[in-house]
Amino acid sequence: MGDRKIILKSNGLNLGYKKQGESIIIAEDIDFELKKGALTCLLGPNGVGKSTLIKTIMGQLPALQGSVILDDSPLGDYSLKELSKRIAVVLTDKVSLGNVTVYQLVSLGRIPHTTWLGSMSSMDHTKVEKAIEVTHISYLKDKVLSELSDGQLQKVMIARALAQDGEILILDEPTAHLDLINRFEIMHLLRKIAKEENKAVLVVTHDLEIAIDTADEFWLMQCGLPLECAAPEDLIVSGKINLLLPSGTLKFNPITGKIQDSTPYDYPIIQGDVKLTNWLKLIIRKNSLVFDEDLQVISILENPFLIKVKGEKKEQNYNSFKAFLEDLS
């Protein structure tokens, strides 16, 4: 375990922007601590101010009140150039470059460290090679960006941020538009980077389930509420994770680890292994299946697979969910 030193913190931070001399506050009274060697996920609905928060942390937007403290000094005391050596980012901005190779793009990360002409020392090349190795993109090194898939491109952008060599890595929705495998890979890669490179990694994401699997800390942002910072497991057990689902119709199910419809549903009596009954409940609920009055019990068996619908008079057997559904609806 790397040392979990706090590198970035804030208290009483007000976020927003100034428009024609008037401050428009987006979020108030935000306290947080970002730790090295930990993967932190920032979650919250669209429009709650996640982007404003990370822009403020990046030093691109001044805080309306309070301040972000980087290593004992407020962010405002650092120049853009000094900040660029501490904080690297992966943004949602589309990058479409045809003539640039992966290696060249990752090298762009060294810009804050090179001389005015941008010539790379052997140390710069070592850092670029390291970043490429950590993100497992060595096989792409000489490819041109237009030849990459979205998932590969995202890894290249992460490598570029790594090459920038700051202690803080901020990623704005790095897994949006990616397929399931790539989402898992990217998030696990980020966790590995936090642990092995001892970086403070902050990820804005909407992938709750993958975030629970990988993050050390969650920051939950919800309109009008203070920022909730805790381990995801604590948030689940205390039920605070449901802050993300304010409407009340959806609820986080702490057993399945999924978000489900929270309105109560009257299931018939079901017998069998939880592994199977959960899916049976799902298909019943999803299709609002109605059963005969005389239904006594539905039992489900795994090997061989069998759904037994037992009524007072008759008993029906099905060997697949599909057959079960077709007969009942």
Binding site: Q60, S84, L97, V100, L108, I111, P112, G118
Partner: peptide, 23 residues
């Protein structure tokens, strides 16, 4: 000549260039 490095950073767009210390 003074800003030649900044033009390379601009390849990724203004926000990235800023994050790399370009004014």
């Amino acid at each position: 000549l003074i800003f030649i490095k900044s033009y390379n950073a601009m390849l990724l767009g203004e926000a990235y260039a800023k994050s790399m210390g370009v004014n």
